[in-house]
């Protein structure tokens, strides 16, 4: 058991030093020492589902014997799970406010690192039946607009843009999550919604996007941190290195995320 752990430390250290470039040559020195089956548990914001699933697969390939267990949920769910003692090694949040709840509770080790950013975009049903072309258009009378409630990150970003532009929105519904907004726009129940750029990327042909310059007034920064309760601190550090490194940037950019 002790030798296994030593091997694990050596492997992780090797990975860390290699900048986690996922080149099989570098960790090869450690690999022959029969890699122990280990599980890295990553809690991540729901908007990271596509990218983190891809990065986890890459991480597993680069680290034989390692399984990455992913848990995606809304910010509030993740924070309550972690504060209630859910065992996790890494936490990636959709905004710094959510991460602050974790760092304030001394649940994270070190300082969280920003690894991506996201801005809002107008989501419309395919064909844009209501002809929405700008942020101002969202305030048009009769237009059915769905946004996130101010209590959730996408809603806070919406409120920030409202405040900076002076445009008052009159939504027909304030949803708890981006998925609620997307559902109502894709089914055509609503004429427009405000979601993140990445949500429109991943929604594919169900949703069309309308960009607007005012979105720069509210940029969400995504932080990632290793958790103090981590059972695999070395793997956690290696995974964070992967996400913040060139591989992570590439995967995140392909999904529509901006640079941190």
């Amino acid at each position: 058991m002790k030798t296994f752990r030593m091997a694990a430390v050596a492997l992780a250290a090797a990975l860390l030093l290699s900048g986690c470039a996922a080149t099989p040559a570098t960790p090869a020195t450690a690999t022959p020492a029969a890699p122990a089956a280990r599980t890295l548990t990553v809690f991540a914001a729901a908007s990271l589902k596509g990218t983190f699933t891809e990065l986890a697969t890459e991480f597993e390939h680069a680290n034989p014997g390692v399984t990455v267990a992913l848990n995606f949920a809304g910010s509030a769910d993740l924070v309550s799970q972690l504060t209630e003692g859910a065992p996790a090694d890494v936490f990636a949040a959709a905004d710094t406010k959510t991460m602050a709840k974790i760092t304030d509770g001394s649940l994270a080790t070190g300082t969280p690192v920003l690894f991506a950013s996201n801005t809002l975009e107008i989501a419309v049903p395919p064909g844009n039946p209501a002809g929405v072309a700008s942020f101002q258009d969202l305030a048009k009378p009769g237009l059915k607009l769905v946004i996130c409630a101010a209590a959730v990150p996408c809603g806070a970003a919406t409120a920030a843009i409202e405040a900076s532009t002076g445009v008052t929105l009159a939504p027909v519904s304030e949803e708890n999550a981006v998925s609620g907004v997307l559902g109502k726009v894709s089914t055509g129940e609503a004429d427009a919604g405000l979601v993140y750029v990445t949500d429109i990327y991943s929604a594919g042909s169900r949703i069309a996007g309308v960009t607007f310059p005012e979105s720069a007034k509210a940029v969400n920064h995504y932080p990632i941190a290793a958790l103090s309760a981590a059972s695999q601190p070395e793997l956690a550090a290696a995974f964070i290195a992967l996400v913040t490194g060139a591989t992570g940037r590439g995967v995140l950019a392909a999904a529509g995320f901006g640079t941190p």
Binding site: S173, E174, E175, N176, G180, K184
Partner: peptide, 9 residues
């Protein structure tokens, strides 16, 4: 309700 009616104070 959440699915059909939405959520507005």
């Amino acid at each position: 309700t959440l699915t059909f009616a939405g959520s507005l104070q």
